[in-house]
Amino acid sequence: MSHPELAVHTEHEAALDRKLWARPALPEHDTELLHAWMHKPHVVPFWAMDWPQDWIRDYLVRQNEDPARSPLLGYVDDMAVGYIEVYDPARDVLGAHAPILPGDIGAHVLIGDEEHLGRYSVAIGRAVVRFLFKRPGVLRIVGEPDVRNHQFLSLLAFLGFRKVGEIDLPDKRAAFMVCERADFERLSARRRRVSA
């Protein structure tokens, strides 16, 4: 069940003529799906959460109970396509390894459904960035993807993120990526003019 009544963000992607939306990830409904995604070959190397299903459920419960985190399920029309973890980077492991500023917000993004990799990735990425910048007080989006995840790093650069440096986290060597609101809006406006 998609539970559209729980949507926290909805937008129409004109280029694809699709509705993109997100709702809270619910342990009682979404554990099986998230478990399947975490075992996909394109996900395992970067998330390293190919755990038993009860571990995934416990993880989702903890994410929902943590006031510094918001676990979400992302949809294209009525199909669940990905998992988004919005977090306060000052209260995350990232805060001990990178220069976090007031107004920063972090997000982990996983596109679990392979059919929606590729051309859908840009639309989904834009929707996530717009959603995060709609939150009150957010000035920058930060992230720490694995330096080996070249496809995701390219997508972030296309969306307006810049690589500030590399950091060593407990579980990976990461690229510290930053997207400032002004850069994203300027890049989006330029692309709209070019496509008009």
Rank of each mutant, 00 (worst) to 15 (best):
Phe184Ile: 05
Arg18Ala: 11
Leu159Ser: 05
Leu139His: 15
His150Cys: 09
Glu180Asn: 05
Gly165Phe: 09
Asp50Cys: 05
Ala36His: 05
Arg190Tyr: 04
His35Phe: 10
Val147Gly: 02
Thr10Glu: 15
Ala14Phe: 05
Gly165Glu: 08
Val43Pro: 06
Ile100Pro: 06
Lys163Gln: 13
Asp171Val: 05
Ala175Asp: 10
Gly160Cys: 02
Val44Glu: 01
Gly82Thr: 06
Leu6Glu: 15
Ile56Arg: 03
Val93Ser: 11
Arg69Val: 09
Gly143Trp: 12
Arg130Thr: 07
Arg126Lys: 13
Phe176Arg: 03
Arg186Met: 04
Pro145Arg: 11
Val86Ala: 08
Arg57Phe: 03
Glu28Lys: 08
Arg186Phe: 05
Arg181Tyr: 07
Asp77Arg: 07
Gly112Pro: 00
Val86Met: 12
Arg57Glu: 14
Arg62Ala: 13
Arg192Gln: 13
Arg91Gly: 01
Leu156Asn: 02
Ala123Tyr: 10
Arg192Tyr: 08
Phe158Thr: 10
Leu26Ala: 11
Ala48Lys: 10
His9Ile: 12
Phe176Lys: 06
Ser2Ala: 15
Asp171Gly: 01
Phe184Trp: 11
Met49Thr: 07
Asp54Gly: 01
Arg181His: 04
Tyr87Pro: 12
Val86Gln: 08
Gln53Ile: 07
Leu139Phe: 13
Asp113Gln: 15
Arg69Lys: 15
Arg23Ala: 03
Gly125Phe: 06
Val44Ala: 05
Arg162Ile: 05
Gly112His: 01
Tyr87Met: 12
